[in-house]
């Protein structure tokens, strides 16, 4: 019998978020399209945000709303922080896409390596 370290139990927020983060990392390293780079960075960000949301949370915890039992309450601090992180994520994506559009209009390519050659040849 082979001992498999991953079972159904290991599909939880923490592992999923780490997997998401590294999928995003793979995307950034392998994709040459700027648009895909922006998406991949976004996936990494989402992975990190999801990871923080799973900190100090167990399946039995209750939302930190009202005067619930302090011991069963999920940790409210990461949740409050992640609202900020999500907002930042949205804004940086918007800025990146805006810049990407003007870059594309200027140089007519969305490929990192092609862009280097076009800038060099000017």
């Amino acid at each position: 019998m082979i001992d498999i370290p991953f079972g159904p139990d290991s599909i939880n927020g923490q592992t999923v978020s780490l997997v998401l983060f590294f999928i995003g990392l793979l995307g950034v390293v392998t994709q040459r399209n700027i648009f895909k780079t922006i998406i991949a960075i976004n996936i990494m960000d989402v992975g990190a945000i999801l990871f923080l949301l799973t900190v100090n949370v167990s399946p039995t915890s209750v939302p930190p709303v009202g005067s619930t039992d302090m011991l069963r309450m999920a940790d409210p601090l990461p949740q409050a922080l992640m609202i900020t992180a999500i907002v930042i994520g949205i804004s940086v994506t918007a800025v990146s896409l805006t810049i990407f559009i003007s870059l594309f209009r200027k140089h007519g390519s969305s490929d990192w390596t092609k862009l280097i050659h076009r800038i060099e040849s000017r």
Binding site: F21, G24, V28, I34, T37, I38, I41, M44, D45, G47, A48, I49, F51, L52, V55, L77, P78, A85, V92, V95, S96, I99, F100, S102, L103, K106, H107, L115, I119, R122
Partner: peptide
């Protein structure tokens, strides 16, 4: 090439800061 340089700066720093955010999560 200012647009290219700006895009590069923005994206590589956002990329690095997602490492930082995950690091904060792990640390917390």
């Amino acid at each position: 090439q200012a647009l290219y340089d700006g895009t590069l700066y923005l994206l590589i720093n956002l990329f690095a800061m997602s490492f930082f955010l995950l690091g904060i999560g792990l640390l917390y």
